[in-house]
Amino acid sequence: MQTPAPFEYERATSVEGAIAALERLGSDARIIAGGHSLLPMMKLRLASPEYLIDINDLAELAYIREQDGEIRIGAMTRHVDLLKSELLARRFPLFRDAETVIADPVVRNRGTIGGSLCQADAAEDLSAVCSAAKAQVVIRGAEGERVVGMEDFHVGPFMTAVGAGEILTEVRLRMRRGAGSGHEKVERRAGDWAIAAASAALWVDGGTIDDVGIALSAVGVTTIHLTRAEELLRGKPPSDELFAQAGVIASEDCSPSADGRGPIDYKRHLAGVLTQRALRRSAARALSEEA
């Protein structure tokens, strides 16, 4: 079978240690979390880091907890734990929607939220989920921590705000009243990457949309933040007509490319359909929450 090229391996025993190792080893080093994106690329020899810093044993980064009005998720929290979290299912059900269709259950036992976000594959679901949920991420380096909103997280294809010598440590979700969210995905087969996927979150207050987040997977070179559609929805009462308009914007504002999963027009069409569905599901959940 395919095998990775040789590398040096270092097991981190603390976040500080991992950051120190990154600083010491420089750009030839890569952090490895669940490894289900990086190791296949290394086997295909598409990635050949000289050093791997393994953070799998950093139990301090594996948690989902409520703190200061937020849900805080440690970067090493695995997909399976996101799927099972009742807290997330109650407050941000789009996580459970997404986690039932991310890869397969066995892969979900290894893959992590931090790894998914840092891989920043535009086809990956959690980047859109976190964008729609208006998450903030905590990035730690030798100089200390900084908090970055998802709107500033994706800086290019497979590129994020996480800089050299830094590690993403936590995802924060602010809990607000009247929240509803949903994730919709179409795939060629269970476990496949999305042909297209849409994440949405709505916060309804007094029958109108107080705030909204919408993001798309697999229909651009990065996760697409649908800011134009968000602006359209804000301040209006949720309705199917409104969501249909948001779907039209989604079709217009995405930039898919043709591949084995489908041609461009189909993916634009799906972006619209799935945006509508995600919004409808979010609204139904938000209204039941508000009621």
Partner: peptide, 8 residues
Amino acid sequence: CTPARVWA
């Protein structure tokens, strides 16, 4: 009969 081909 993939989704894309059926839709097309």
